[in-house]
Simulated assay, not measured.
Amino acid sequence: MNYRNFNLALLLFVTLILSSCEEQLLDIDRFGTITGIVVDGTTYEPLPGVLITTAPASNAVLSDEGGTFQLDKITAGDVLINARKNEYLTGSISVAVYEEENTAVTFFLLEDENNVGDVVLFDPVPGNGAVDQPLSFTLSWNVDQENRGVELDYTVYLFESGSTTQTIVSENLQNREAVISNLKTNTTYFWYVVAKFDGQNVANSPTWTFRTGGG
């Protein structure tokens, strides 16, 4: 190989190495963290031993004696968090995780008293993650149930971001909507619906979120 060909080969090799490094840098995942607390939805007592998982999948953890948990190195983006404990209805919350930031969540789990078959609550209005919502409006949802002959009623819960207590917006509802009012401006709220039969909890919805506007 002459000197000119050697230089060309060396230049090509360096170019390939730099290109490979650039591709690797572009492929580096961006991570954030998720911290949270799980409490009994009736007593507000911390719940230890709750299994916390995510989708996309990450490390599964259990809540500690104080009901708290932490998930590290969560890829930035939309993440579904699930909380499961024996004898409780499973809770789920969809959140946005940002690079090098912490996302805090609260789970209120209610005892599972299911004896009516599968019940699924879905299709919230406003849609999950809605922004610029008014300070008074109507929440609504749909339901799909295995045993359609069972008449369900519904209780709607609402809480602010970061709160470990919640408010009952409406209960013993026969229809699938609830009016909320006197909300705070520029505030993130979470809400979920519990389906009941004969006074017993049979299903709960995912925890949905919306943010109010400036009034």
Rank of each mutant, 00 (worst) to 15 (best):
L89T: 10
V119S: 07
V14D: 01
F13Y: 09
T207W: 07
D132F: 05
V150G: 08
Q70T: 12
T106R: 07
I34D: 02
L18T: 14
L183Q: 10
E99I: 05
L47C: 05
T167H: 11
E177L: 14
T103K: 07
P126K: 14
Q133F: 12
I74H: 03
V116A: 09
F159V: 01
T185S: 11
V39C: 04
G36V: 02
W191Q: 11
L12W: 03
P126T: 06
G66H: 06
F108W: 03
N204F: 09
V150L: 09
T187N: 12
T68M: 08
G66F: 07
F137R: 15
T164P: 00
Q145N: 08
P56L: 05
I28L: 15
G67I: 02
Y44N: 10
P56A: 00
T187M: 06
E171Q: 12
T54V: 02
T212M: 08
T165M: 08
Y189M: 07
V97A: 05
I17G: 08
L18D: 06
Q24K: 15
G32E: 06
Y44V: 04
P46F: 02
L158F: 12
I74M: 10
Q70G: 10
Y98G: 12
T185C: 03
Q133A: 12
E23M: 13
P134Y: 05
Q200W: 01
I74P: 10
N114P: 06
V95Y: 13
W191N: 06
T35N: 14
W141I: 02
N114F: 07
Q24H: 04
G49F: 06
S92K: 15
V194Q: 00
V125H: 14
T54A: 02
V39A: 01
L109K: 04
T35Y: 03
N175G: 13
L158D: 08
G213Q: 06
G36S: 03
V143T: 02
I168G: 01
F159T: 00
F197D: 03
T165D: 06
